[in-house]
Amino acid sequence: MTEIYINGKLYKVSLPEDTPLLWVIREHIGLTGTKFGCGKGICGACTVLLEEEPIRSCITPLKAVKGRRIITIEGIPADHPVKRAWVELNVPQCGYCQPGQIVEAYALLKKNPRASREEIVRTMSSHLCRCGTYPRILRAILRAQGMMGVKT
């Protein structure tokens, strides 16, 4: 039995400890907002927070998060400025990469609410979006900063 906290809830799973966290979350816990994209930690679709740090859950084995706190897309409040800005600007197209993008943006603003445009672009460039929503993602993060009352 491995214990993990996901979005504040304790889960006990009985799985090989090398099982990637992504599949634990998706198939065994049943939260499918976190996506599978590349399996190599490149595209960012599987991004979740470990404590406050964004990690790639597709290359993170279960044993590495034993007893620790994970936040997924479902665990970010619906009224959080990042999520609100995303909806207001019609950011998602196919939507598949967006949970990972949102988790990354949420973590960035939590750590550094005043992140500059350059920092935002640098951080978000670790995520791939085939629909090309990058211009809107950038605008949404800037807008979220505005909602949070942050002057950049």
Partner: peptide, 21 residues
């Protein structure tokens, strides 16, 4: 007007092929 699929795709509840359980 607002995209009809935006909210689902932002809160993670949108069901893609890989999400059907």
């Amino acid at each position: 007007i607002p995209r009809i699929d935006a909210r689902e795709k932002v809160d993670g509840s949108a069901i893609f092929g890989i999400d059907v359980r």
